[in-house]
């Protein structure tokens, strides 16, 4: 399969990239790793008139802590996250997720920015971003603005990005003492899209949960923010009783559909199982355990 024809641009600055996107008024797409875009183009699910390759723009690939944030450049490859000691040590949810996205070859090309801005509810990082309370720096013709993950996902393949805007940086709040997080993904086979996935972020203080974030993958039109489930944990002692109740609340907001990866009831049940599993791992990590 060959993708449909397109004009190709490889600008060397963000401003130039934004200008080209504006010129095509919604008919151009940003090309980062291309691991989602090229397959959908081959299938004619997308037929952009132009591709704007942002890989030649310098300084868009990095993972660093700066100010109160972990900052990840949009074209950082998934395997750069997996190889990052900073991510492994302080943001284990990111390596939980990045190590199970597609396969190792795809992870050499696929980018963090692409996984987050593609808008596929089966992408793994969006749920993690919701759980972590991340925000995204976005460049457009009027400069840079910041969009919280919680208001970024509007519908399937539809985000708060304007056609002439580019996601440039992912910003994740730096971890505090007592924070732990985890991502659990259920796959039918290695490298597949998830059947379902659950992302958890917890803060514990004095054997009480102080705050929590929960994101769900592949059980709705977008990644879902399970706010009621997360709020139910606040003030509770971390443990099976609190985790079971949060898992039940997460199951309630899941809107799974039956497909090749399983019936809806099964997927809903698995949200409950994975939520409890991820909560136990996150809580263990919050206590400084592995």
């Amino acid at each position: 399969m060959i993708p449909p024809r397109f004009e190709y641009f490889a600008p060397s600055t963000l401003d130039e990239a934004v200008e080209i996107l504006g010129r095509y008024g919604g008919e151009a797409k940003v090309l980062a790793g291309g691991q989602s875009l090229l397959p959908v183009m081959k299938l004619r699910l997308a037929e952009p008139k132009a591709l704007v390759d942002i890989n030649r723009i310098p300084d868009l690939a990095y993972i660093r802590e700066d100010g109160g944030w972990l900052r990840i450049g949009a074209t950082t490859r998934m395997n750069d996250v997996n190889d990052s000691n900073l991510a492994k040590r302080r943001y284990p949810i990111l390596t939980d997720a990045a190590s199970v996205i597609a396969d190792p070859l795809v992870r050499n090309m696929g980018t963090v920015g692409g996984n987050i801005s593609h808008g596929d509810p089966a992408n793994d990082l969006p749920a993690c971003m919701l759980a972590l309370g991340a925000q995204f720096a976005v460049r457009g013709p009027k400069g840079t603005r910041t969009i919280p993950a919680a208001s970024f996902y509007l519908d399937t393949f539809t985000t708060a990005l304007e056609p002439d805007e580019i996601l440039t940086e992912i910003q994740i709040p730096k971890p505090r003492t007592g924070q732990g997080n985890a991502y659990e993904k259920l796959e039918k086979r290695a490298g597949d899209f998830p059947i379902v996935g659950v992302a958890i972020n917890l803060f514990e203080s004095g054997r009480k949960i102080e705050s929590a974030g929960i994101g769900l993958t592949a059980v709705g039109p977008t990644a879902l923010h399970a706010k009621a489930a997360a709020d139910s944990l606040v003030g509770q002692a971390p443990g099976d009783a609190a985790f079971r109740r949060a898992a039940e609340l997460a199951m309630q907001i899941a809107q799974p559909v039956s497909d090749l990866r399983g019936p809806a009831e099964y997927k809903r049940a698995m949200i409950g199982v994975l939520a409890q599993r991820a909560l136990r791992t996150a809580s263990k990590r919050a206590g400084g355990g592995a």
């Binding site: 291309g34 691991q35 397959p39 591709l51 390759d53 070859l105 090309m109």
Partner: peptide
């Protein structure tokens, strides 16, 4: 279709030649 691109293994059916 795996080849090495700058030493990294990638799937060459999902990369444009221009990349």
């Amino acid at each position: 279709c795996t080849v090495l691109l700058d030493g990294k293994a990638v799937k060459s059916c999902t990369i444009l030649a221009v990349q």
